[in-house]
Design a protein around this nucleic acid. Sequence first.
RNA 1: GCCUUCUUAGCUUAAUGGAUAAAGCAACGGUCUUCGGAACCGUUGAUGGGGGUUCGAUUCCCUCAGAGGGCACCA
Length: 529
Amino acid sequence: MKQSIVSKIEEVLKSLQAEGILPAFALPEVHVEVPKDEQFGEYTSNIALVMSKAAGKNPREVATFLQEKLGDDFAKVEVAGPGHLNFFLKESDFAHVVTEVLEKQEHFADSTFGQGVKVNNEFISANPTGPLHLGNGRGGFYGDSLSRLLRKTGFEVTNEYYINDAGEQVTKLGHSVLQDEEAVYGGEYIEELRAKLGELENDAWEVGKRAAELVVSDYIKPTIESGMQISFDKWTSERALVEGGMVERAIEKLKEQGRVFENEGATWLRTTDFGDDKDRVLIKADGTKTYFASECGYILSKLEQGYEMIIEIWGADHHGYTNRFNAVVKAFGKEEGATFLLMQLVKLVKNGEEVRMSKRAGNVVTMDELIELVGHDVTRFFFLQYSPDTHMTFDLGLAEERSQKNPVFYVQYAHARMASILEKGQEVGMDMADVNLSLLVHGKEKSLMREMLTFQEFLESAARDSAPHRLPQLAIRLADKFHSYYAECQVIDIENKELSQARVALVSATKIVLGETLRLIGVSAPEKM
RNA sequence: GCCUUCUUAGCUUAAUGGAUAAAGCAACGGUCUUCGGAACCGUUGAUGGGGGUUCGAUUCCCUCAGAGGGCACCA
């Protein structure tokens, strides 16, 4: 719908210029949006405001020219405010969308927006040195929901977890398990690892390797799969990559590009060619490779697998690494680099005092603990609500109280209420086969239908902006509109069967759209609570 | 010192450069229940300070103040 309005506006503008009503000038790009306020219609364009200067006429005048030529396909086209052009859809469009939702069910609003582009979405990727903590949770839920959104809008997405099991931290983990003087990590899980590993040789690297595997299999994976309900398509091991010779290949390839040089006994990559602050070491003077070198191998392997879009969801503390990362991507010949989502760190507060999260001290609050305390749906909804830029503070003292007041219940309750109405509708024999949807003329009904009309649009722009945090807001809005409708209109009324059937159809469609929104968020859509 | 993110209502947060800045919680006042009251309706209340760009700025630029994060031949 949006696209067709855009083309119509473009067409009319050209004809206005041809007729000499508007002077000849390069037409700006036409933007059509869904206005947030319903009183401004279903779609709106600011084109008259944007081009008024070039046209040498005031915006309202330009808008009026357009208005006169665009009227036919809409119930109303209006010029409002400083020169906005607002489009109101016909009654038949409203009724039609309900039919469409009921036909397509959960596939309603599936789109081809992403054009099957192959996306690699890497998130969490916590070091295999301990259980996942709250900071991992934020990026985890965000990444998972983003993937769901991208798939819905036509991208082909692979969720990937990178296991950093080849570096110095593995040796440190080994020392910690051995409990020698170089131990750095503490906490209960270290004791558990010790017990599970049994007889230990006195080699921190070997012990660390085995311990890291256990951390992944016994802590990280269960938390992700059962606790957080995230499924990864791929778990990539840094060590496997290194042992498979990927890193050497990457370095060779970079040498071929002429980006590699020697200095002070070390081997460097000239990342400054691509906007990095300084060049980076690949091979240290002592002959060992840096983490950055294996990162190069990893990037090459992603590119060789044919991913056209690379998404990296990192903690904001990794901000300084984006340039060198992109430098490598570009050195391998990909022009636009990766999409980075930098999640600001979660600040943890308990009774007004900040809790420093440190694996060393063993005072981390784990995802498992939080999920056990308040439940998966509450945890996920809470973390997903906020934009990555927000420096969110999480008050543990309020966590339980929050769980009672979490909006996720409000939304789920709306869904359960719909289910209950539909069940009742069936009992009293409401037949959906031949429904007269033109009876849905109440303002609250139109408001619900408007959400359906603009649903796909909403999803596509959230996908375009990598902004899954808008989904909880949509869920709340849908629930709000439904509750409000419910309070004002009797859905099932035996005395008025025709209207009731239309309303049951509307509730049924609303339930599908809300259910789909909840699925994209990743929380359950209960039939009963 | 350099780079970077943030500052919106009492609190936690929304708002692809658009129209009257939106919710939840808290507070206050109503609905008194035939479909699920975990609900509905209403009231109070906000863009850190100062410049600039723009027809239009919470949004872009500069600056000041405050708060986070980052600046390894570590990973």
